[in-house]
Design a protein around this nucleic acid. Structure first.
Lengths: 215, 215
DNA sequence: GCAACAGCTGAATCGTGGTTCACTTCATTC
DNA sequence: GAATGAAGTGAACCACGATTCAGCTGTTGC
């Protein structure tokens, strides 16, 4: 007898898998989920279509993973700024809102795919988790604010969800296929409007939001 | 020669067409877009599948019309309460919000389909128009409020969109497949939270919203 | 070198629904 | 009641894209 998988071959296998994930992600980020059929992704990764199935159960499973990872990155970015130490809850909500909006505007096709593009049911389930993650992020900030007395009592779960929905909806227009560019000034105004909206919604005067550079 | 379409035959034709529309609508309202294949709809309307194609270009065209009509009904209902005469803009925003939310909660499967369920691209375009219609409805109320001085200046288009998104997102959880019932008390609390949210968002103290019965 | 085996290949296959169309039914006119 | 044509029928058809699999390639251990 002879042969046993070795470090090298396992590394290659991993690399192939990663390459497929990246190709799938890039395809979605560039042209949306609708454009991401298995053949296209495989070609982009430089492998045969069959290879995709040696690494993933199904197309759904592949894209569920793609969505999960991309979504997690977004959640992490927002969570990072929302953790801003020694700041009021209002400031952190503003920062989270701003990051959410800026990142969406900077990667509109991906954001559109993550937030609203029609996808298959398995991937849709992943999206729901993603949105729910954002709800929770905002809700826990709000809980903190209510607990400390900074904010009025409220149903923080509902308000968290509403904030996420507000951002997503207001961004979808600008994210939409047709909407090309106008790429700097209008973005600033939109971001400012959304931050203001969020602060109003949580019942806080704006107290002029500081400038910073999450993006 | 002999034969000419007559009033009677045209009426029948119209009735068939209407029956198909109704069957398609009811199917979506009962079990969602995903369940609404042509065979099912035809059976429900009591006609053969081929008949569907004598009345509609394609499945997309049929469901685009179904969505258009259902969406228009929703828009009309909200517009009706938002036209409440001799009321402040804030009161009318509150009323519109309440109607939007209550109607969605009373017809959750339909609302889910209209608002977020994955659909084909042609139908998705119809959904965008629907959401845009709601944006405009809220935005024009806000314009009025800003013009009269009742509200602070704001980007009414953005705030209109954000309000619609907030409502949709906060409702999707309760609308979701899994979420069964709890059908009265929780609804009231949710509606109240959303109205409060909307009033905060437009920067108005609540001034205790009056009770009424749009649904 | 060669046996053993994993990973890769990509054309062929398969499933799912939308769509078609040759035929049937039925109302209409003379 | 026979000719005419529109409306309706539903089994067959077809497009599309996910999935499979028989063979091929490259690596490993002796």
């Amino acid at each position: 007898m002879a042969y046993r998988p070795t470090e090298l071959t396992e590394a290659r296998r991993r690399a192939t898998r990663t390459g497929i994930l990246k190709a799938a992600h890039d395809q979605v980020a560039e042209a949306g989920y609708a454009s991401a059929d298995v053949k296209t992704v495989a070609a982009r990764a430089g492998v045969a279509t069959g290879t995709v199935y040696r690494h993933f159960e199904s197309k759904s499973a592949l894209f569920a993973e793609v969505f999960r990872e991309a979504a997690q990155r977004e959640l992490d970015m927002v969570a990072a700024v929302a953790a801003w130490p020694d700041r009021t809850v209002a400031e952190r909500i503003a920062a989270g809102t701003e990051t959410f909006a800026r990142r969406a505007l900077n990667a509109p096709v991906l954001a559109y795919a993550l937030l609203v593009e029609p996808v298959d049911p398995v991937v849709e389930a992943e999206r729901l988790r993603f949105r729910h993650g954002h709800h929770l992020g905002f809700a826990s900030l709000l809980d903190e604010g209510v607990a400390s007395g900074e904010l009025e009592p409220m149903d923080t779960a509902v308000v968290g969800a509403a904030l996420v929905g507000a951002l997503a909806e207001a961004l979808v227009g600008p994210l939409s296929p047709s909407f090309n560019g106008n790429s700097r000034r209008p973005h600033e105004a939109l971001v400012a409007s959304l931050v203001q909206f969020a602060l109003n919604a949580i019942h806080k005067e704006d107290a002029d939001v500081p400038e910073h550079a999450h993006a």
